[in-house]
Each structure stands twice: as structure tokens, then as C-alpha cells.
């Protein structure tokens, strides 16, 4: 058990540092913050609303993450396979689970770091007024969990191909589905031809209701279970893909 933690830690550390060993991380972070800021202030008209309320700020996370999380994860396994380092990685005395966990946690930590760098917006709002602190914490917990679910999907798609662009597009499409499945305008269209059990079943897969309930500052066990299931399923899928890819 100790050995397993240590291996995961070593792999995590290498992967997390790899983000900052190239300029990509800095470009990514700047773009991420600019996009969140732009959408909050100019598209949602944060100032004109005249309310020290962060709901317009948290509203954008599912969409910004949709665009950028696949970019942060597309490299993780595609590059291992393209450069052949996967052959080193999987012949080290580590299990595939440890290798997957190290990469997943590193990418998730990187996205958490990006998310938390938005703190000036929150600090400004607190200085201007009195936003509900519970909602702020809930909003951040929701944003981080959401990023985790997207990261897990991105890990899965990066195991499927050697091409980063394909990995990005696949992750984008799956995450878009997760975001839109429970979105009322989409559900209305589907409702016209599909039986309601199917519509409700598909809607239950969506991240949106879980993201929104956390935004209200309520940390519900069901939301946590939902995110944990999405992450576990996606990582398990990645495990199966690598196991089988090795033998072909």
C-alpha cells in the first residue's frame, strides 16, 4: 500500500512538472483566466448587474472547461505512445493503475490550480459586497469536481489514439454530451420523439444538475457519488484500452 502511494506520487510529480517544463502551461493558464474574466465581465455583464453575486462567474466553468480541459489532457497518453516512452513506463516496477492514477491526479491538480487562480474575481466581489460564502465554496468545489470528471474523460480519450488532435476532439464531444444531456433546451427537442424514460435516463448522465446544486452551496452526497462514478468509469475504461492496446 505504501509502495503504491509512493509510486503514484513519483509519477504524479513527473507529470505535474511536465506541464511547467514547457511554455504550454503558461499559455494555457493565461488563456484560461482571460477567458473566464472576459465571459464574466463582458458577456455576463457582471458590473451592469449591480449585484455582488458570483453566479455569473461560476456559470461559465462548464463551458470554459469544456474548451480547455481536453487541451490539458490530450498529451497524456498519446505522447507516451507516439514517442515510445510507454514502453519504459510500463516496464518500470509500477502497476498500470498507479500509472493511470499518477497522470489523472497530475492533470486534475493542474486544472485545480488553474481554477483557484481565478480568486481575484472572488476577492473583488467580496470587497464590493457580501456574496454568500457557502455558495462561493460550493461553486469552487463544483468547478473542481467538474474539471475532474472532464479530466478523466480526457485521459480515456488520450489512451485511444496516438494523435493529440483526435484525443482533443473525442474528449470535447464526450464532455459536450455530458454538459448538454440535461440542459432543458436540448431535452425539449429530444422529448418530441424519444420516450420519457430514455430522456430522463440520458439527462441523469449530465454534469449540469450536479454542478448547479453545488453552486447553491449545498454539498450533497449524490453529487459526490455522481462525480466519483464518472471518474472511476472513465479511468477504468482507460485501463481496459491500454491493457488491450498492448496486445495488438
Amino acid at each position: 500500500m505504501k509502495r503504491c502511494m509512493e509510486n503514484t506520487w513519483e509519477l504524479f510529480r513527473r507529470e505535474f512538472r511536465a506541464y511547467f517544463e514547457s511554455p504550454v502551461a503558461y499559455v494555457f493558464l493565461v488563456f484560461y483566466l482571460m477567458l473566464i474574466g472576459f465571459l464574466t465581465f463582458f458577456v455576463s455583464r457582471f458590473y451592469e448587474a449591480n449585484q455582488a453575486d458570483l453566479k455569473y462567474f461560476f456559470f461559465w466553468f462548464p463551458w470554459v472547461n469544456l474548451l480547455l480541459v481536453p487541451a490539458a489532457t490530450m498529451r497524456l497518453w498519446t505522447e507516451e505512445r507516439r514517442t515510445g516512452t510507454i514502453e519504459l513506463l510500463l516496464t518500470f516496477p509500477v502497476t498500470l493503475t498507479e500509472a493511470l492514477a499518477g497522470k489523472f491526479l497530475a492533470a486534475w491538480a493542474f486544472m485545480t490550480f488553474a481554477t483557484l487562480l481565478t480568486f481575484p474575481i472572488v476577492v473583488t466581489t467580496m470587497w464590493l459586497g457580501n456574496p454568500d460564502l457557502g455558495a462561493v465554496v460550493g461553486g469552487y468545489v463544483g468547478a473542481v469536481l467538474l474539471a475532474g470528471a472532464y479530466v478523466a474523460v480526457g485521459i480515456l480519450t488520450s489512451t485511444m489514439t496516438r494523435n493529440q488532435v483526435i484525443s482533443y476532439v473525442l474528449a470535447f464531444v464526450i464532455c459536450l454530451f455530458l454538459a448538454l444531456a440535461g440542459w432543458p433546451p436540448v431535452m425539449d427537442i429530444v422529448n418530441k420523439w424519444a420516450p420519457s424514460w430514455l430522456v430522463n435516463g440520458v439527462a441523469a448522465l449530465s454534469v449540469m444538475p450536479h454542478f448547479e446544486s453545488l453552486q447553491r452551496g449545498v454539498i450533497d452526497l449524490r453529487d459526490l457519488v455522481y462525480y466519483a462514478s464518472v471518474m472511476t468509469l472513465a479511468i477504468f475504461g482507460a485501463y481496459l484500452v491500454i491493457e488491450n492496446r498492448k496486445s495488438t
Binding site: 515510445g84 514502453e87 519504459l88
Partner: peptide, 11 residues
């Protein structure tokens, strides 16, 4: 193990 083509993490 030294695999074929000596793969390494370039960065």
C-alpha cells in the same frame, strides 16, 4: 530495459 530507439521524455 533499453527499448528500441531509446525512448525518453524530451522535455
Amino acid at each position: 530495459y533499453l527499448p528500441e530507439n531509446a525512448p525518453l521524455y524530451p522535455e
